[in-house]
Amino acid sequence: MEVRAQARYVRVSPRKARIVVDLVRGKSVAQAQEILRFTNRGIAETVEKVLNSAVANAEHNNHLRAESLVVKKAYVDEGPTMKRIRPRAKGSAARIRKRTSHITIVVAPREEA
């Protein structure tokens, strides 16, 4: 029984978010929460919220125990990019790309994962 949670349109580049998400893939929920709590990256707080949401979904909707859950899948997809213009020399312009991410975490009971 897989249970997932997703945070969409998070204002961080996917490359930066993947660094943090790679740390928790395959770990138990308690271990993943501890890693995220002490990771010195801004996006770690958001990833922890998504993980806690996935655990709450598993407990409430599927009546699973949090102690038996493992992070089965964790991945970051690229969201839409907001494009902005920055004035440059001689009347030209430079494009600024403000990237967004979709963070997905899937938890499952230990036997299934």
Rank of each mutant, 00 (worst) to 15 (best):
A89M: 11
K73M: 14
H63T: 00
G79L: 09
F38H: 08
V20S: 02
P80H: 07
F38D: 01
R25C: 08
L51G: 00
S92P: 08
R15H: 10
V55D: 04
A32N: 00
V70Y: 11
G42F: 06
G79C: 07
V55A: 06
V50M: 07
Q31C: 03
R15M: 13
K90C: 05
V24Q: 04
A58C: 04
Q31W: 09
G91M: 09
V24K: 04
K90I: 09
K83N: 13
E59H: 02
V20T: 04
T39Q: 02
R84Y: 13
A66Q: 09
Q31R: 10
E45P: 01
T81K: 12
Y75D: 00
G91S: 09
A17K: 01
A56K: 12
G79F: 08
R86K: 15
R84T: 02
V12I: 15
V20G: 01
A30T: 05
I35N: 03
V29L: 03
S13T: 12
S28N: 14
Q6E: 14
G26N: 00
M82F: 15
A7E: 10
A32Y: 03
H60G: 00
Y75H: 07
A7T: 02
Y9W: 11
V71C: 05
T81R: 12
N62H: 09
A56L: 15
Q31S: 14
Q31N: 11
S92H: 14
H60Q: 07
R15S: 12
S13Q: 05
R11N: 06
R84N: 06
A89G: 14
Y9G: 02
R15F: 13
S92R: 15
K83H: 11
I35V: 13
F38I: 08
E48F: 14
S28C: 02
I19W: 13
A56I: 08
R18C: 02
A93M: 09
Q33F: 06
Y75G: 00
I35S: 01
L69G: 01
N40S: 14
A89T: 07
H63G: 13
A44P: 13
A93R: 12
E78K: 13
N40G: 06
V71G: 01
L64W: 02
K90M: 15
K16M: 08
E78M: 13
S68V: 11
V71W: 05
F38S: 03
V70E: 00
R37L: 14
V50S: 03
R8Y: 00
G79R: 04
L69V: 04
V50C: 03
T81A: 05
K90S: 08
V12H: 10
I19F: 15
P87I: 03
A93F: 15
T39D: 02
S92A: 11
T39E: 01
E78N: 13
L69W: 06
K72I: 01
V20Q: 01
R11D: 04
S28M: 10
A7L: 15
T81D: 07
N40E: 12
R11Q: 11
Q33P: 02
K83V: 12
G42H: 06
E67L: 09
N40V: 05
A30G: 15
K27I: 05
L51T: 03
P87Q: 06
S68L: 07
P80N: 06
L36E: 06
R18W: 06
N40Y: 12
R18Y: 08
G42S: 10
E59A: 11
V20M: 06
N57F: 00
Y9A: 03
K27V: 05
E67V: 07
H63M: 14
